[in-house]
Each structure stands twice: as C-alpha cells, then as structure tokens.
C-alpha cells in the first residue's frame, strides 16, 4: 500500500517514514505542499498523511487542491497536526480530510489510529 507523507519537518518525516516502512507500507515523501500535489498527481497514492502547518501553502489549501485531482477524490486524507486552536479539526474536515491524528503522535498507537481511517 502506497502512502504519501506531506510534512515539512525532516525529523518528523523520518519518524513517520520509519514507522510506516516498518509496517510494510510504501512511502512517498513530500516536504512542501506544492511538491505534495505534484507527486500525488503523478504517483497516485492510496492514502495521504497531511501536515496542516506547512510553509507557503497550508494543509487546508493542499487538501482542497488534492480533492480537485481526478483519481484522488475518494482516497483517505488524514490530517496530522498539533491540536492547537479550537476549530482545527473541523476546518481540516471541511477542507477535504477524512481523518485526524493529533501530534505528538504515539508510536505505540499511531498505526492502529491510521488504519481506522483507511
């Protein structure tokens, strides 16, 4: 199963990639929203883990852009974000996300949490 991670922090990217790969997922890495959209169009992942606080183009905008791409209209998009201000979760769902995992993630439960949205 091919999962795309859109995340700007290199350490977090490494950690998520490690976790997913150790559970036999194929990972596509994107460090910016723009790259994420381009790679999603070309690679057509089965699911996307999307960080919301991204530089330049934020996660909400990325989610909306992804939903506009033919073939990506129904795939799971899981927002992975720091639970910061009220309304973040609602905003993510409004923008097209189908799942929501709070940061910091717990390595013990992350995969189980993610699977509920797949």
């Amino acid at each position: 199963m091919k999962i795309q991670i859109i995340e700007d922090n290199i350490q977090n990217m490494y950690m998520l990639t490690y976790l997913l790969e150790s559970h036999d997922y194929t990972v596509i890495q994107s460090f910016t929203g723009k790259d994420g959209i381009e790679k999603a169009r070309s690679e057509m992942p089965d699911a996307i883990l999307l960080d919301i606080q991204l530089p330049e183009m934020d996660g909400y905008a990325v989610a909306r852009a992804l939903r506009a791409i033919e073939g990506l209209k129904r795939i799971p998009i899981i927002a992975v974000t720091s639970y910061a201000m009220t309304g973040d979760k609602e905003k993510a769902f409004e923008s097209g996300a189908t799942g929501y995992i709070e940061k910091p993630i717990d390595p013990d439960t992350f995969i189980t949490q993610m699977k509920t949205y797949l």
Binding site: Q11, K103, P104, D108
Partner: peptide
C-alpha cells in the same frame, strides 16, 4: 508557538517510543 514547540517534541516522543 504551540506548533513550533510540539513539532520537535513530536519527534522526541516518537523516536523514544520507537
């Protein structure tokens, strides 16, 4: 701030967990 503080904390907690 919350995001900036949580981002490194995320990988600390994540990596120690792993």
């Amino acid at each position: 701030m919350s995001h900036e503080l949580r981002t490194p904390l995320n990988s600390i907690i994540g990596f120690t967990g792993i």
